[in-house]
Design a binder for these strands. Structure first.
Lengths: 232, 232
DNA sequence: GACTCTCCTTAATGGCTCTAGGTGAATCTA
DNA sequence: TAGATTCACCTAGAGCCATTAAGGAGAGTC
């Protein structure tokens, strides 16, 4: 833990650069986040940034990791403000949507980073951040499964079971494939809906998707043996 | 209908340019579709392309429209190969997924074009193409509604009803808000799942999403009063 | 044969990423 | 405290990109 003067300087500059990148993203859009523009924003010349980030991609990666962290922490904080399984799970889901809709540019950025599979290595920053993000939802359901198992299908498709068995293994086999299948069905509907909303795929029909989201929760909770509770 | 020799030449060149753009997209990724690269591909120098497209954005728009058209026609053709409402609807859904998964780059391109709302004008190329695309699914359900109405909720959220009433009006009020709500719930789950799949949001858990998609259909059809039928 | 229109060229502007080489100041070492 | 080292930054420049401007070659038309 060497926090020399220089080290602290460097950390501060790094933070300033990431903040500038985020400011550019939210005010001028994703294509405005260029090495040159960010450098100008913090008052240095383009190439100077290469002393802090190896290139554009690494800068983008660092900012993405920030967003992931922020979103994940928000979900965890929302969860920790409650103590029953139902309320904790609902808090996680609503925090996800709240952060996504109040930070659309950042959420789009996160989403886009998962589209291209450039660093599919299981030890990359992005991969880990994504795992941790999804893990909040999954962890809460795993706990639910331990304390109060929910009903699972007994006729799961063979190919599906095999795929989910592999995935369950990467999660330490906390859940059997059948339970993981229920979790994934819920997650796909939940995360899918939030993505559709924030990525403007439903604008033509809706102006406010909160009731749609709440109805989705109302349909999902019974699948986990829980009872829906109104927000607020 | 003036198809002079020159005119035909021009049309052919236009087609060649769009084909080159598509080739670049699928082989080298979306960021490789630059004016210069496309021009090189068809054997002319950069600025020459401006005789065919006003700029990069217009080229992108034209290519996007091609993809939309191709996808839409595929869905229509699949539909027209069957004659019962159930089979027609299933054919549409499966054709959507088939095209998306077999043309991932093109589907991502389409999806991305809907994220940024640059041309929200209701007469823009993209908007119309998007309407027509969604209209295949929606039209099939509208016909279903006419011939064999499906059950709808009688306690629809007030804000939701109002939003859907407006949307229904833009569709010529073929469906009441309550029915439209059911349609949208189905569409969101279906389209959402296909997007998640093609945009690599589920890679960490699944390698083959066909069984998930079929299960989704199996769950959705009863909501429309129809009975699921296996593919093939 | 002259005129026009289309298609294409090169040149130039100004943005971008990123590399290379250099400068001055802070820091470490003896 | 003097010299070596490291660090943070600079300018210059190569090679992309989009786009505009200016002009030339050739086909179609009068």
């Amino acid at each position: 833990m060497t926090t020399s003067r220089r080290d602290r300087q460097r950390q501060q500059t790094l933070a300033e650069i990431r903040a500038a990148a985020r400011r550019l993203l939210t005010t001028k859009g994703p294509e405005a986040v260029t090495i040159n523009a960010v450098a100008r924003e913090v008052g240095m010349s383009g190439p100077a940034l290469y002393h802090y980030f190896a290139g554009h991609e690494e800068l983008v990666g660092a900012v993405t990791a920030d967003f992931y962290r922020e979103l994940t922490e928000e979900m965890e904080a929302a969860r920790d403000a409650h103590d029953t399984p139902t309320l904790r799970l609902l808090a996680i889901c609503r925090a996800l949507r709240r952060w996504a809709t109040s930070h659309p540019a950042e959420f789009r950025w996160i989403f886009a980073s998962r589209i291209a599979p450039p660093h599919r290595q299981p030890d990359s920053q992005w991969y880990l951040a994504g795992q941790r993000f999804g893990g909040v939802f999954l962890g809460q359901i795993a706990e639910l499964w331990r304390t109060r198992p929910f009903p699972v299908p007994d006729d799961l498709d063979e190919s599906l079971r095999e795929q989910l068995r592999k995935y369950a293994a990467t999660l330490g086999d906390q859940l059997p494939p059948e339970a993981l299948h229920v979790v994934m069905k819920c997650w796909i509907r939940l995360y899918g809906l939030v993505c559709m909303e924030v990525l403007n795929q439903l604008d033509y029909a809706y102006s406010d998707l909160e009731p749609v989201f709440e109805e989705c929760l109302r349909e999902l909770l019974p699948l986990l043996g829980l009872e829906y509770v109104n927000p607020g």
